[in-house]
């Protein structure tokens, strides 16, 4: 009896996405529970025809390998600094566990790592002893991806900036990413991201991952760091922020008024009102120059 198309596609998808063995072969038995642990050659024979050179299992295995090689390659490209921090072997385990739990839910591989930071926080064992640094680095690398190609809206002009008052609600550029970190991880990521090249293609080949030399990351000391990852003239930049500046920006992004954002920014501050005002003017001048402030939609 013919298998309905949708059922066949669910079946093949589950088989293709089943994690490979340590030797990068297809699992000899079902490990997903979908087929109750049955032998995969039986599963494959249920819908794939063999030929005189390849069994149904071997034909399905080609797709199983291609799937993993492709998404592993994309993940490697997106998180080179994380790989350097946790080490190659641990990174492979981390990557495979993450991708098994979070396969792509988007038409583009660009979004493959969108859940990585939350997942790593929930699964700290995969990061080893350097969890905090690994989390910081993953956040910076994901912020880079967001800043690289997120939208850019019209920023406020000088007249609009002059008209801003305490009741104003302001939006921030979609490409502007705000991070509170335990390490100055931008230094490490900047050092590792010597070259960014992400492109979708039809090529079904395994990248030369195993030939890559393991990069040694620069050593960092723990130091609270507030960071803006943003785009200017089509390039991504990192700008360190002060803690109050970070709090003002994140409060504005939550949709609060400027007065509320400033309150949040200077809570507990010992600065005089005059100094605070001076700081706010400096920040606004910088934000306006960088085009970070927009009218809410």
């Amino acid at each position: 009896m013919t298998m309905p198309l949708e059922e066949l596609q669910r079946t093949m998808c589950a088989a293709v996405m089943q994690p490979l063995t340590a030797d990068e072969d297809m699992q000899p038995r079902d490990t997903t529970g979908r087929w109750s642990g049955r032998a995969m050659d039986e599963v494959a024979s249920g819908f794939i025809a063999p030929n005189d050179r390849l069994t149904a299992f071997e034909r399905l295995e080609i797709y199983n390998r291609q799937y993993w090689f492709r998404i592993q390659s994309a993940f490697h490209e997106d998180f080179p600094a994380l790989r350097a921090v946790v080490g190659s072997d641990r990174f492979e385990a981390l990557m495979n566990a993450y991708l098994a739990q979070h396969p792509s839910r988007s038409f583009t591989l660009r979004n493959l790592g969108s859940k990585l930071c939350d997942w790593l926080a929930e699964n700290p064992g995969y990061a080893g002893r350097r969890l905090t640094l690994a989390l910081d680095v993953a956040r910076v690398e994901w912020a880079y991806i967001e800043a690289f190609d997120s939208a850019e809206r019209r920023s406020l002009n000088d007249e609009e900036v002059a008209a801003v008052n305490g009741d104003s609600r302001l939006a921030l550029q979609p490409h502007l990413q705000l991070l509170a970190l335990s390490y100055p991880a931008d230094d490490l990521v900047l050092d590792m991201h010597q070259r960014e090249q992400r492109e979708t293609s039809e090529a079904g080949t395994r990248p030369e991952l195993e030939d890559e030399e393991e990069s040694t990351p620069i050593r960092l000391r723990k130091r609270p760091t507030w960071l803006a990852v943003h785009r200017s003239d089509f390039s991504v930049y990192y700008k360190r922020l002060s803690a109050p500046e970070y709090r003002v920006l994140t409060t504005l992004r939550e949709g609060k008024t400027l007065a509320e954002a400033l309150d949040a920014g200077f809570t507990g501050s010992r600065l005089s009102a005059t100094t605070q005002l001076s700081r706010v003017r400096e920040w606004f001048a910088a934000w306006a120059q960088l085009g970070w402030i927009c009218i809410p939609e």
Binding site: T2, M3, P4, L5, E6, L8, Q9, R10, M12, C13, V16, M17, F47, Y63, Q66, Y67, R70, I71, A74, P103, S104, R105, S106, F107, L109, T200, E202, G204
Partner: peptide, 24 residues
């Protein structure tokens, strides 16, 4: 084909050459 139930394989997976697949 390459996606099912919102999950993407990012591969160009072959189709069964059936009349149902033709129509869909």
């Amino acid at each position: 084909w390459g996606s099912v139930d919102g999950t993407y394989s990012h591969d160009l997976l072959p189709l069964p050459y059936t009349w149902e697949a033709v129509e869909k």
